[in-house]
Design a protein around this nucleic acid. Sequence first.
DNA 1: CCTTAACTGGACCATCGGTCAACTTACGGC
DNA 2: GCCGTAAGTTGACCGATGGTCCAGTTAAGG
Lengths: 183, 183
Amino acid sequence: MERADAARNRRAILRATEELLASHDLAEVSMDRVAAAAGVGKGTVFHRFGNREGLMRALVESRVESLSTAISTGPPPLGPGAPPASRLAAFFDAVVELATRNVKVMAAFEQAATDRLNSPVYLAWHAHVSGLIASASPALDADLTAHLLLGSLHSDLMLRSLKTGETERLAAALRSLVSTLLR
Amino acid sequence: MERADAARNRRAILRATEELLASHDLAEVSMDRVAAAAGVGKGTVFHRFGNREGLMRALVESRVESLSTAISTGPPPLGPGAPPASRLAAFFDAVVELATRNVKVMAAFEQAATDRLNSPVYLAWHAHVSGLIASASPALDADLTAHLLLGSLHSDLMLRSLKTGETERLAAALRSLVSTLLR
DNA sequence: CCTTAACTGGACCATCGGTCAACTTACGGC
DNA sequence: GCCGTAAGTTGACCGATGGTCCAGTTAAGG
């Protein structure tokens, strides 16, 4: 069991990290600064999250949670029940929206991650997309095609779209790419 | 004009960097080590290339040169003359092959780059792909679709494909993605 | 051969991610 | 309510890194 003060500190650290990421350049958000902003010692941050990557991963996971449950147990078309093509379209719409709203967090994780492709969140997304592709369009190499499509969500492109205020255009292009592919 | 000794050192540094990248983990290739391996002082490396990103960019550019000229002045289908769809297919084949052969270099650049999307190489590739898409399939959002396709070349996926010995499978998946898109 | 601008080297610096051992505290069992 | 202890906290400390700087060296044109 996690002690009450420990839980409080964990929340404070996550919140502080998020605030720092929102207001500063990624390079300026050091572990020292995070600790200071959260009002805890640096050792506490490392005790809680292991290392920078662990902190960023925890942050991503906290922001992605609701989408995960919506996919596995929510209503269609995001959740189970709808035809694969619709579910795929819904998934990418949701993920673009989510990634847009949390670009800085995503970017911080990508930069800190040693192997993005094996992170829990990526694995889950990949399994989902890959499965849907396989059942919607058995002729495709579902596994790799899923990787290719997910590659579009890299933070640098999202960051640029956000800066130019054209995230809807990005979502549209991706949507059209997915639908063309399944036809 | 670059002095003769300076030119010699520049080549030595590039060669040393490449060798270190090939034989060590990316994280172990520090600027100090590069300088030592090239047999020059650290200051020389920075004088020549400005910073880590500059060094890695120069390395990428040296490895990409031949493809660039093949595209702009070489024979079809890579060079001018062939129909856009063929040129696109040829480009992606060539680029996957190139990226596969130089994964470590590409990875080193991606990790060091501040804004990949504005690097000369990426800009050139994007302009090329975007132009071809626009003329092959005017209904598409050429600019963004080009970004989406180029996103597939991220080094982490190439690295994984290389490890599992399935780079041809990756090339095939990408080829099929491109051709489906233009149809 | 001489002048000078270009080049070189490596000591030096701030900062970073990460460790650790001494100290403090929450909390379940009595 | 108290107390033992496992869990949590802290910040000084460490090695390494990217980058700077300037005193000394050298290539090359006139």
